[in-house]
Design a protein around this nucleic acid. Structure first.
Lengths: 335, 335
DNA sequence: ACCGTGTATCGAACCGGTTCGATATTTATC
DNA sequence: GATAAATATCGAACCGGTTCGATACACGGT
């Protein structure tokens, strides 16, 4: 590995001049610039990013921390961020917390140790300790997906209230009255908003929400399965089920299939968030999806802005909330 | 941020002693060790990983490079590697090449610049240039998934010939003779082996492979869809289709559904590799799956071994090939 | 009392860059 | 042609650690 001193020797200039020639070519005479460049290519010099980061106190890397890298929702966002970062000569380090707060914290601290230039984080927790931790992060950052009360950071996400309300309204329009809701963890903003969208839409329509029709699916497949089973074994079954996310909805579909119910003939089903192969799942689930590409794009732009614009430090945190989109399927029938 | 010099000052010892106290506590007197430790915790000292990597010429990070982080196949492997690495105080940097060789190369070079201690790579290409590039990598590494001819590195993967043969044999046993195969890119080892498994099993059974029944699906959804359509519009349709991977198989299912064919009544379907929600897809596709957890485990162990064991440098490259597992579904009927 | 051995600690050089203030050189101004 | 201003280059200090060879000291054996 050639070092900057090799280049300096070869070009017969000082080390600092070589450094200058690369970091701000304008401050060096044309002749010197040429000498340095040819010397560099002769010895095959490439600056060591580690040494640069150490000296500068900041690298050209962006940290991306989510609970499940495999989730296509995060995948789309990641791709957008990667592309945008690449255009600006930055590099995305992806990490996966498996949804564990402990690990998320360790990852974030590690990334900060790496002197990342920016951080895109999908928060995995909540509460005072967590808020304190996030607030203590001094690296430019953007939070997304999960809005956490008390965190004063840029946030990019979808209108989850609307997502819940849209599906509810759709089912109401189809004549459903006994609508069940498989909810997510109460403390999560996305989950509570989606739930609120369901409840308020029902109430607005003058329909009382049956407490037995609201079950907790934890946003996970296994809990969703159990929750769906509880719904299905009730004597007065719901005529429609809304899954607060894709995992619980598909778990419900599985439960229905296993018990011999037909969807949508016996029970209608709708969900929030897409899955990868939704188009080959029978029936095609009616859903409300987030505009992941747009979300990723906003995250990327906002983060790069915070990172590169000097006055951005003083800009107050801002929320970017996108409307979700309704995608009709064949899983909801008129009653 | 407290530095090592702050600790040295506080503990009234030299900087080198502090360094020694942390890296090899045994070489320092008990009294000094205690002084250093308490001084460190008083000033809140944490070693800067960047400076350490620069000085040591190696970090405690492992690079993980695949073509699609969102693919659950890679997800399982990643998780295994992460857990194992964490147990050994290493940290996995995930990167996604989107299957593009150019980007993969840039990522690998960047990671090497970061002085990663090891590299787990799912090769995205082949050919002399590519082999040269991989061979030039001096960091301890393990390749997986795709075996590339000419690369002398540890390799971990599945027996793809067997995977293709197993599904073919299964369909033969069910009485199928007109079996079609949606293949992957010919130059990819996994694809060619699966194809070979199909062809040789057919030949062994004394059945001639109809050239019209072997179409190229490129392992992608869109090409798979087109390939499936070509199969379905033939006057003498196949009675069964094998998808060389999950994407082309599900694309075929979609094509069948759209044209109004019933699976398995009209056409049977089988595939290699699972997908996330396979259990809610109707019919449940008969498949051969790879033991991703086991693969990930072997990759992790082998890589860490290469990284940490001094004599490992001289060990020749080794192949680890696992047998795939047959998972019956409801997508293949007897004819 | 003398010497050899081992252990604890230290200073200095190093990893490979950046950056600031000082100096040398060129250009512009009158 | 003298002087001021602008430009180009450099040396040295620094980022925060590691590591090697040297030194100082304690201990046991004779």
């Amino acid at each position: 590995m050639a070092t900057i001193r090799d280049v300096a020797r070869m070009a017969e200039v000082s080390v600092s001049t070589v450094s200058l020639a690369f970091s701000s070519p304008g401050r060096v005479s044309a002749r010197t610039l040429e000498k340095v460049r040819s010397a560099a290519s002769q010895v095959g010099y490439v600056a060591d990013p580690l040494a640069q980061s150490l000296a500068r106190g900041r690298s050209r890397m962006i940290g991306f921390v989510v609970g499940n890298v495999g989730n296509p929702f995060f995948g789309d966002i990641r791709r957008e961020l990667e592309n945008y970062a690449l255009e600006h000569e930055h590099f995305v380090l992806i990490t996966d917390s498996s949804g564990k707060t402990e690990r998320e914290r360790a990852l974030v601290e590690h990334l900060i140790g790496l002197k990342i230039a920016g951080l895109a984080l999908a928060p995995s927790s909540f509460g005072p300790d967590y808020v304190d931790f996030i607030s203590s992060i001094k690296v430019p950052m953007v939070c997304f997906d999960q809005k956490v009360a008390g965190i004063e950071r840029d946030f990019v996400g979808s209108n989850n209230f609307l997502a819940g309300a849209m599906l509810t309204e759709h089912l109401l329009q189809l004549g459903h009255r006994r609508i069940a809701f498989i909810a997510g963890p109460k403390h999560m903003h996305t989950a509570s908003e989606r739930h609120r969208g369901f409840v308020e839409t029902m109430v607005s329509a003058g329909i009382e929400v049956n407490p037995n029709y609201v079950v907790d699916g934890q946003f996970t497949r296994s809990a969703g399965y159990e929750a769906a089973m509880r719904l299905l074994i009730q004597p007065e079954r719901p005529t429609a089920i809304i899954g607060a996310n894709n995992a619980v909805a598909l778990a419900a579909l599985q439960a229905m299939q296993e018990l011999g119910f037909s969807c949508p003939d016996d029970i209608s089903l709708a969900m929030i968030d897409n899955v990868q192969w939704s188009s080959v799942i029978t029936p095609r689930i009616t859903m409300v999806v987030q505009d992941t590409v747009q979300l990723g794009n906003i995250i990327a732009r906002r983060l790069l802005h915070r990172m590169t614009s000097p006055e951005a430090v003083h800009e107050p945190a801002q929320d970017f909330v996108l409307a979700p989109r309704f995608v009709p399927g064949t899983s909801c029938r008129r009653v």
